[in-house]
Measured scan of single mutants.
Amino acid sequence: MKATFQVPSITCNHCVDKIEKFVGEIEGVSFIDVSVEKKSVVVEFDAPATQDLIKEALLDAGQEVV
Rank of each mutant, 00 (worst) to 15 (best):
residue 38 K to L: 11
residue 27 E to T: 10
residue 25 E to K: 15
residue 52 D to W: 12
residue 56 E to P: 01
residue 15 C to D: 14
residue 42 V to T: 13
residue 32 I to E: 00
residue 8 P to T: 09
residue 64 E to T: 15
residue 6 Q to D: 09
residue 36 V to T: 05
residue 37 E to Y: 09
residue 37 E to Q: 10
residue 26 I to Q: 02
residue 62 G to W: 11
residue 62 G to C: 15
residue 13 N to W: 12
residue 60 D to G: 09
residue 64 E to R: 11
residue 43 V to M: 02
residue 57 A to T: 04
residue 25 E to I: 11
residue 46 D to C: 11
residue 32 I to M: 05
residue 40 S to N: 07
residue 23 V to W: 03
residue 19 I to T: 01
residue 61 A to W: 07
residue 9 S to R: 05
residue 65 V to D: 05
residue 23 V to G: 03
residue 63 Q to V: 13
residue 47 A to E: 09
residue 13 N to R: 15
residue 49 A to Y: 04
residue 56 E to G: 11
residue 4 T to Y: 14
residue 60 D to N: 14
residue 65 V to F: 07
residue 2 K to Y: 08
residue 49 A to P: 02
residue 14 H to C: 12
residue 15 C to Y: 08
residue 32 I to W: 04
residue 42 V to H: 10
residue 23 V to R: 04
residue 18 K to Q: 08
residue 2 K to D: 02
residue 55 K to F: 13
residue 28 G to P: 01
residue 52 D to M: 12
residue 61 A to Q: 03
residue 52 D to F: 11
residue 56 E to Q: 15
residue 4 T to E: 10
residue 51 Q to F: 15
residue 1 M to R: 11
residue 19 I to D: 00
residue 12 C to A: 11
residue 63 Q to M: 15
residue 31 F to R: 13
residue 20 E to L: 15
residue 43 V to E: 01
residue 55 K to E: 08
residue 8 P to W: 08
residue 37 E to N: 06
residue 23 V to F: 02
residue 7 V to P: 00
residue 51 Q to K: 14
residue 42 V to Y: 15
residue 54 I to S: 01
residue 38 K to E: 09
residue 65 V to Y: 07
residue 58 L to R: 01
residue 53 L to I: 10
residue 52 D to V: 10
residue 57 A to G: 05
residue 44 E to R: 12
residue 40 S to M: 14
residue 15 C to G: 08
residue 12 C to R: 08
residue 58 L to F: 04
residue 57 A to W: 04
residue 4 T to C: 12
residue 49 A to M: 00
residue 3 A to L: 12
residue 66 V to F: 08
residue 39 K to N: 06
residue 41 V to R: 02
residue 36 V to Q: 05
residue 11 T to L: 09
residue 12 C to Y: 11
residue 52 D to H: 11
residue 56 E to D: 10
residue 5 F to G: 00
residue 21 K to R: 11
residue 48 P to D: 01
residue 56 E to I: 12
residue 64 E to P: 06
residue 3 A to F: 10
residue 51 Q to T: 13
residue 32 I to C: 04
residue 46 D to N: 13
residue 63 Q to D: 04
residue 1 M to I: 08
residue 6 Q to H: 14
residue 20 E to N: 15
residue 54 I to L: 04
residue 8 P to R: 11
residue 65 V to M: 08
residue 60 D to T: 11
residue 34 V to K: 01
residue 54 I to K: 03
